[in-house]
Design a protein around this nucleic acid. Structure first.
Lengths: 235, 235
DNA sequence: CATTTTTACTTGTACGTACAAGTAAAAATG
DNA sequence: CATTTTTACTTGTACGTACAAGTAAAAATG
């Protein structure tokens, strides 16, 4: 079956935004303009725009138009407050381990899906700092079959999710999380430069994606003393 | 202006669900049935059902119908895994402080809005246990002006949010959160029955509601050793 | 009687029309 | 020239029609 009309329009506009033809604050073409340029009816144009709204790319303004907005920062994933917001801030990411083939590590908290565990696994880990202060350690595991070529790839703007979206056209559609307060073990303490046994926030994540049976598994260890973890949600 | 047709239908169905005429797993009337019983077109019926989907009350199943689902547990609020899921489980809630007039406590992490800080404040706090194990302490502050009568009210099914929805017709529309791993102080340690200095998860919350300028401020202290905090999000 | 086909539903997509309601600039008014 | 009205857009709501596609039970088939 051919791709649905509204999804064609939706993806076209999404690509335009991702490529920067429209930037934050810009107005997309009006519903009627989309109608004539794509030879569709308003029902279909509206459906495409409504989907982009759901995905967080645009905001609809009654009487005005559809404005491009800051991509929903969180998607229910918890991100270090000040990490993304501190634009121009002194944020630094250090690879502890560049993407490479690996085992499905038993450290992964959520259960790896049946179809994935049989296949190759890519692992990478990063240390994220604010200024010179290490704030978070991040371990990631994902299917090496679906993200073929990732090992030889430079992340777009240093962002894995951006690479996922633009290079592989895979979007994050949700996540499961589990949070624990723990005492830092020796390894974590050394990397985060904190005393052994300091309270740290351990976040286990399983990201769901637009690709069937493809998940991303992450374990995060955060020093929340200076940079607490922030999250927000709005219907 | 009269209320929009789709919103009338949406609210009618929501009320039916809230009152228990439809329970989890039940199918709502089909789009065509709604059309004839409300004298509306499918466009309007679908809009009503789509809104209920967004709100998390139902799930649409192609070729089958609209099924009532477990109310989105989290709304971005993090809830103790096993607390709501452990249906029939040994969950116990103990009031440390029944709702009463109080000051806007400086313990509140988020900034209380201008219009609220001038008015009365209601405070209540609870200890939530799984079996005999205390898992979480919860401190709540909110406007006493808008929730008049709350002090003399028994919570519906012991749930504050249910009371808010059904008695005051106020819905949670979002939340801001900030998470920290901390060492338990003496007060917290005693209440949670853990050693002084144990790692605990401190969650600061500001709930947004459907009522203008009405927020709920909460500070949660969780022992995540046996019952980690779970959360999930799906587009 | 097991298997296949049909039927009668369901929701999903897409067409098209009409008017309400919000926005902002241009035009008319005093 | 300040104020009001009109105009020309925008999105929102709601009407109506047609067929695609998924589901599950009933009916037909061998």
């Amino acid at each position: 079956m051919e791709e649905k009309r509204y999804r064609q329009v939706q993806n076209f506009l999404k690509l335009q935004i991702q490529k920067g033809y429209y930037v934050v604050g810009d107005y997309l073409p009006s519903e009627n303009e989309l109608c004539s340029s794509f030879s569709i009816t308003r029902t279909t144009a509206r459906k495409a725009l409504d989907e982009l709204t759901k995905e967080g790319f645009i905001e609809r303004q009654h009487g005005k138009g559809s404005i491009v907005r800051e991509r929903r920062q969180s998607l229910g994933l918890l991100n270090v407050k000040g990490f993304s917001e501190a634009v121009g801030g002194d944020v630094k990411t250090i690879f502890l381990q560049k993407p490479q083939m690996n085992f499905w590590n038993p450290e992964i908290h959520f259960t790896v899906s049946e179809s994935e565990i049989k296949e190759a696994c890519i692992h990478f880990s990063r240390l994220r700092c604010v200024g010179e202060i290490p704030a978070m350690i991040e371990y990631n595991w994902l299917s090496g079959k679906i993200l073929e070529g990732l090992i030889d790839l430079e992340f777009i703007d240093g962002s894995f999710f951006k690479t996922l979206s633009q290079h592989y056209r895979i979007e994050i559609t949700g996540s499961e999380q589990e949070l624990r307060a723990e005492n830092a073990n020796k390894n974590i303490a050394v990397l985060l430069k904190i005393p052994l046994g300091s309270p740290i926030l351990h976040i286990s994540l399983k990201f769901h994606t637009s690709k069937n049976n493809f998940y991303i598994y992450s374990e995060l260890y955060c020093n929340t003393e200076n940079y607490p973890i922030g999250n927000s949600y709005h219907i």
